[in-house]
């Protein structure tokens, strides 16, 4: 599982932070979120997909690696 937050699109709505605090962290002074590359594999895929679908700026992309899963 690979999660990316586009820094150009993210406007700091923090919906992902509320949904999956283990997978995203917030850069206060830049007013935007980042995905935590180590944590994302420990988080339920459904929650990550929800974060992707709830982001008002469509800044989050979730990719399943290969076709294994």
């Amino acid at each position: 599982m690979k999660v990316n937050v586009d820094p150009q699109r993210c406007r700091g709505h923090a919906r992902c932070i509320a949904l999956a605090p283990e997978a995203f962290h917030f850069l206060d002074l830049e007013d935007r979120a980042e995905a935590d590359p180590d944590a994302v594999n420990r988080v339920d895929a459904a929650v990550l997909l929800e974060a992707e679908q709830e982001c008002p700026e469509r800044a989050i992309t979730v990719e399943r690696e290969g076709a294994k899963s």
Partner: peptide, 23 residues
Amino acid sequence: RIGNRHLAFGAGPHRCMGSNHAR
């Protein structure tokens, strides 16, 4: 509801700064 990308706090560079506190 799934995919609730509502605009109650606006979007873009003017996204409501108090949104976290409001929630």
